[in-house]
């Protein structure tokens, strides 16, 4: 990963390679994301989600955040999607396509989605069109960890408590008795 980054960031100003990578990743990600929300097979949706999430991880690497990328793989692909698949199988999804997983009327939602995208895209292009990202080297893991354990220690502790609460909550909600 590192060496890939090193190779493509030789010349920070014109980095064709990064942009090519980005293009490939973005297209596959978007396709996967659309499949997630359109496929009528629940397991396929979860598997497409893996592709989309892996694309997000790849984007993190392009942005120089290796640690977040690996965490993305570990947590999302290794745990969250597995949980999804687990849940899908426990709730007895049918093996083939199941048209009842989505509403019949989708035009309203599509309109909302497109409208939202239009508004956001306009605002983003209007505001950030001049900003360039120059990623020379990946973010050091030590920097991230130092920051978490000093500046952001209280949010970190809060997250820990939240996770504990969620753990207990999930057990309480899901247990059979």
């Amino acid at each position: 990963m590192n060496s890939v980054l090193a190779a493509v960031s030789q010349d920070a100003d014109i980095v064709v390679a990064q942009n090519v990578f980005f293009g490939v990743i973005a297209v596959s990600m978007l396709y996967a994301a659309i499949r997630v929300v359109t496929t009528s097979n629940v397991v396929h949706a979860a598997l497409w989600l893996v592709v989309a999430l892996a694309g997000v991880a790849a984007n993190f690497i392009l942005l120089g955040s290796e640690f977040v990328a690996v965490t993305q793989v570990l947590v999302y692909i290794g745990a969250v999607v597995v949980l999804f698949l687990f849940g899908v199988m426990l709730t007895r999804a049918s093996l083939g396509d199941d048209e009842s997983v989505a509403q019949e009327k989708r035009s309203m939602a599509a309109v909302v989605g497109v409208l939202l995208f239009g508004v956001m895209a306009f605002a983003l292009i209007d505001t950030w069109s001049d900003d360039r990202l120059v990623i020379d080297e990946p973010q050091q893991v030590t920097e991230v960890s130092d920051s978490i354990f000093s500046q952001y220690i209280i949010p970190f502790e809060a997250i820990s408590v939240l996770l504990l609460a969620a753990l207990i909550g999930a057990i309480v909600v899901a247990r059979q008795d």
Binding site: V15, A26, M29, L30, V37, A45, R106, A109, F117, A121
Partner: peptide
């Protein structure tokens, strides 16, 4: 790289997600 390419990608992903939330009936898919 432009900042905007990431932001627009994220916006698109966000909107696809919103579409999914609105359209799906299956709790898992939501």
């Amino acid at each position: 790289m432009l900042l905007n390419q990431f932001l627009l990608l994220a916006a698109a992903l966000f909107c696809i997600g919103v579409y999914g939330v609105l359209v799906r009936k299956n709790g898992m898919l939501v």
